[in-house]
């Protein structure tokens, strides 16, 4: 995808902003322009949270999302507000455990055990990185290597191992495809 819009949706504290920042970083390294915006609400934990990227090869005119090409859902909360924004045929990655009720529609749904994988790795908070790995595994958004590099550069050293394993798990899930449409 040359130009696309992607949203990470979930609830506060799930590390959506980090996922978005790492992805944006990786995309910029790949030479693309990125505008990142986020929900900006008084609640910081437990409420609806989203991080949006508008990605373009050249200049970004309008920096906010208008039609999502990719939607990553780590929680049920953002589902309702985000589904209407999906472009036909959009890629939707959702955590099977926490965002299991995705309405039917014209999109490519991948319901994956994101948080369960993270739990299996020892820390549910790595769910966001698992999701990034899925994006890399699916191969449509960003190169695997670039993402792994930004993770190595961008997360604290003491969490690096966990995050790399989470990323690898995500890649594995992505490559496997998972239950699609």
């Amino acid at each position: 995808m040359e130009n696309f819009e992607i949203r990470f949706g979930g609830s506060g504290g799930q590390g959506l902003q980090l996922s978005a920042r790492l992805l944006a970083d990786a995309l910029i390294r790949e030479g693309r322009k990125v505008a990142r915006s986020q929900s900006y609400e008084p609640t910081s934990r437990g409420g609806l949270s989203r991080a949006d990227l508008v990605v373009a090869a050249k200049r970004i005119d309008y920096p906010l999302i208008t039609a999502l090409d990719v939607l990553v859902l780590l929680d049920q909360l953002p589902v309702a507000v985000s589904m209407p924004l999906l472009r036909p045929g959009a890629l939707v990655i959702a955590d099977a455990r926490r965002a299991g009720e995705i309405p039917e529609g014209d999109h490519d749904l991948h319901l994956l055990p994101l948080s369960e994988s993270a739990l299996a790795l020892g820390n549910e908070r790595a769910t966001n990185i698992v999701a990034l790995g899925v994006l890399a595994g699916l191969g449509e958004v960003c190169e695997h290597d670039t993402l792994e590099t930004v993770i190595r550069d961008g997360v604290p050293p003491r969490f690096l191992d966990l995050n790399l394993r989470a990323f690898a798990k995500g890649v594995e899930l992505g490559e496997a495809g998972g239950p699609g449409r």
Partner: peptide
């Protein structure tokens, strides 16, 4: 405006 203020760009 707030959008520009909170937008992240390069």
């Amino acid at each position: 405006d707030e959008v520009i203020g909170h937008l992240v760009e390069t």
